[in-house]
Amino acid sequence: MKSAVLVFPGINRERDMARALRLCAGSDAEMVWHSDTALPAGTDLVVLPGGFSYGDYLRCGAIAGRAPVMDAVRAFAAKGGLVLGVCNGFQILCEAGLLPGVLMRNAGLKFICKDAYIRVERADTPFTRGYTAGQVIRVPVAHGEGNYMADSETIARLEGEGRIVFRYTAPDGALSPEWNMNGSIYAIAGILNERGNVLGMMPHPENHVEELMGCTDGRGLFAGLGQHFAAAL
């Protein structure tokens, strides 16, 4: 699996992401600068990491979503290439029009930095094949704007087409407002695009991949992506 990690000014999780890709999927990621106009030849997976691109100016992800490299990402996605956006990466994908909806200020107005429990709604995607459907994983969140929202028609489609891939739940997998920490509609923590090749999620799986991190629940996402490409060979 050949991965490309996009780097925008103000992004700060790109090394964590590259490390997770190497540890869990054996993929040495190439860093791609925001002003580049092409992805490395043979790229299988594009990852937009977390951070604070452009200092969250205007809206989170708004400037990065219109960076030159995003035209190449749009073309890559249009051909079916896999794209993963985490945290600010999810916000950037929404702003770039690769995913529907928007991530608004957390309902409680506070920046939230703690572990979240998220339920994997389906395991039949390249991003979630390392898990089982219904499995609850513990993954850290660190965001001020993670409150997912879209118009009611879009939400109905996301739900109806099974494109809500991760939801915030209690540790036992039960939905409750108390565990939906940022107020996202339908407790949405991660969604897929219509074609199923672009995933955006607020929690950081790359930060739970080693024993010393206290939890390895994030490994399945990267390991699953590795298996996806190994199986395709």
Binding site: L58, R59, A62, R66, E95, P100, V102, M149
Partner: peptide, 9 residues
């Protein structure tokens, strides 16, 4: 339309 506003919200 293209930048200053996010017309979703």
């Amino acid at each position: 339309e293209r930048l200053l506003a996010n017309t979703v919200i």
